[in-house]
Nucleic acid binder design. Structure first.
Length: 286
DNA sequence: CTCAGTGTTCAGTG
DNA sequence: TCACTGAACACTGA
């Protein structure tokens, strides 16, 4: 479930494994024109192969590699994207060059294989794979990711910079949509996704149906503090769901069971708001 | 067979 | 032009 914490965790993993290393093999799925929707897989391979990874970056749900030459690869994991890692050196040769040719299937985890969109192999044999069953993710090239769309159009990244309560109040005062919908607006809250929005509203005891502009000063302040706390906590535990506090709505919000309850036995309701399934607790959220 | 789903974008409306 | 809504996208799994 790639929202900010999952993406940040992926970025840190990739940085740890690839920083300072040269990419000796870059293997996009040669037939994929959906995930590779701008640069062709072949252009993508040419841009990356032989380059050295100097670092990584992230804003909102996008992350990228900083190479010793431009352009740089930019990743968005969509709904079902994942970063997978292989460390065995022998793997590289065993896999060969082409992604989906029959002999190369040997040694690949059969669970991962059909959804692998890109593999990157470093000089020391470290290997990263990007998988994405549903193909809502995108892999692109950018000369300067932060300065060009879509990343340049993102709003505040809560892990990096976040407006004061006063400033946030001014932003929300202009919005007539339900607060749930506004929380999902990447032009304001970069990196917030469906479950984080629901979690924040639950913990700040606000109904997702509330019109953003009608929140009181105190409510905006509460929302802001909670949002920062939820994001920081989930990043701190590396988006490991089992380590999220037991009190979080997160553990109970999935599926739409009629009898769904929070840890404190509060009834969970599912509505559609801002076009998305919204789990909330009417007995707590006003 | 049908439908929901962690996200983004675009067409249409007001 | 802007804010907002809802459909479309692609595909798996319940």
């Amino acid at each position: 479930m790639p929202e900010l914490p999952e993406v940040e965790t992926s970025r840190r993993l990739v940085e740890k494994l690839l920083k300072g290393k040269r990419l000796v093999e870059v293997l996009p799925d040669p037939d994929d024109r959906i995930v590779f929707d701008r640069a062709s897989p072949e252009e993508f391979r040419e841009a990356l192969e032989g380059a050295r990874v100097k670092g990584t970056g992230r804003k909102g749900k996008y992350f990228w590699l900083e190479l010793d030459r431009r352009p740089w690869p930019v990743f968005h994991l969509g709904m079902t994207g994942h970063v997978e890692v292989r460390k065995k050196k022998s793997f590289v040769k065993a896999w060969g060059r082409r992604l989906y040719s029959e002999p190369d299937r040997k040694g690949l985890d059969p669970r991962i294989l059909p959804f692998c969109r890109l593999r990157m192999v470093a000089a020391d044999g470290t290997e990263i794979a990007i998988t994405d069953p549903r193909r809502f993710g995108r892999i692109r090239l950018a000369e300067d990711p932060e300065r060009e769309p879509p990343i340049s159009k993102l709003g505040y990244d809560p892990l990096v910079e976040f407006p004061s309560a006063k400033k946030l109040g001014e932003i929300l005062a202009k919005r007539r949509a339900p607060i749930k919908a506004v929380l999902l607006d990447q032009g304001v809250f970069a990196g917030v996704g469906n479950w984080i929005a629901d979690e924040v509203l639950y913990q700040s005891r606000l109904s997702p149906h509330r019109i953003a502009a009608k929140l009181s000063t105190a409510e905006v302040a509460r929302l802001r503090t909670t949002l920062l706390a939820v994001i920081r906590k989930s990043v701190a535990v590396h988006a490991d769901y089992y380590r999220y506090p037991k009190s979080w709505l997160f553990h109970h919000r999935w599926g739409k069971a009629k009898e769904a309850m929070t840890a404190r036995k509060q009834k969970i309701v599912h509505d559609t708001i801002g076009g998305r399934t919204t789990a909330w607790v009417p007995s707590v959220q006003v």
